[in-house]
Amino acid sequence: MITWEFIIGHLNYWFFIVLMMTGLYIVIAKGNLVKKVVGLNIFQTSVFMFYISIGKVIGGTAPIFPMDMKINNDVVYSNPLPHVLILTAIVVGIATTSLALALIVRIREEYGTIEEDEIFIIEQELDFSNTRSNTDKPIGHF
């Protein structure tokens, strides 16, 4: 069942999945928040390439007619729908990236670090000091 043709025809999907998993690995394993955003970007771009590769027709050309609009019906065009979808997705992607980077700058202002584990430690200490100051109050207070 698994022929040479099958492997060649699916190799592009597998490459994009490997790239996607590289991005996912960066998101999970790295503690630096900027690196996490870079990983998300790699993940995103590999999904884009995956979609575009679905729309490709071998022997086809870019979905643009000649300028004089003399359309030759023998010309094969690649599927324009994934292109439209991915154009929208790229622009939305930059919007979310910029929002994430703004949040990182803000986190840095507040915590003085952009490392995940350090932020976690600070949060724990804050919670601990909060509970301690609450229990320090005399019980007959209210």
Binding site: F48, S53, G55, K56, V57, A62, Y77, S78, H83
Partner: peptide
């Protein structure tokens, strides 16, 4: 570009 998606 090689995948015919010039706009993208």
């Amino acid at each position: 570009i090689t995948l015919d998606a010039v706009d993208v």
